[in-house]
Computed example of a mutant assay.
Amino acid sequence: MTLVDSNVLLDVVTDGETWADWSQQRLEQAASSGPLIINDVIYAEISTCYATVEGVDAMLRNLDMELAAIPRTALFLAGKAYLRYRGAGGLRTGVLADFFIGAHAAVEQLPLLTRDARRYRTYFPTVELIAPEREQ
Rank of each mutant, 00 (worst) to 15 (best):
L10D: 00
D11F: 03
D11M: 08
V13N: 04
V13R: 10
V13D: 00
V13H: 01
T14M: 12
T14E: 13
D15G: 12
E17R: 01
W19K: 06
S23W: 03
Q25A: 14
R26Y: 12
E28S: 14
Q29N: 14
A30L: 13
A30Q: 11
P35R: 11
D40P: 09
V41M: 08
E45A: 02
E45N: 03
I46W: 01
S47R: 14
A51T: 11
E54M: 11
G55T: 08
V56N: 01
L63P: 05
L63H: 11
L63N: 10
D64H: 13
D64G: 10
M65C: 11
I70G: 02
P71N: 06
R72M: 08
T73P: 08
F76S: 08
R86S: 14
R86I: 14
G87I: 11
A88I: 09
G89D: 10
T93Q: 15
V95R: 04
A97V: 01
I101M: 03
I101H: 00
G102E: 06
T114H: 07
R115C: 05
R119P: 00
R121P: 03
T122H: 06
T122I: 12
Y123P: 01
V127L: 10
E128R: 07
L129V: 02
I130C: 07
P132A: 07
P132T: 08
Q136W: 11
Q136T: 09
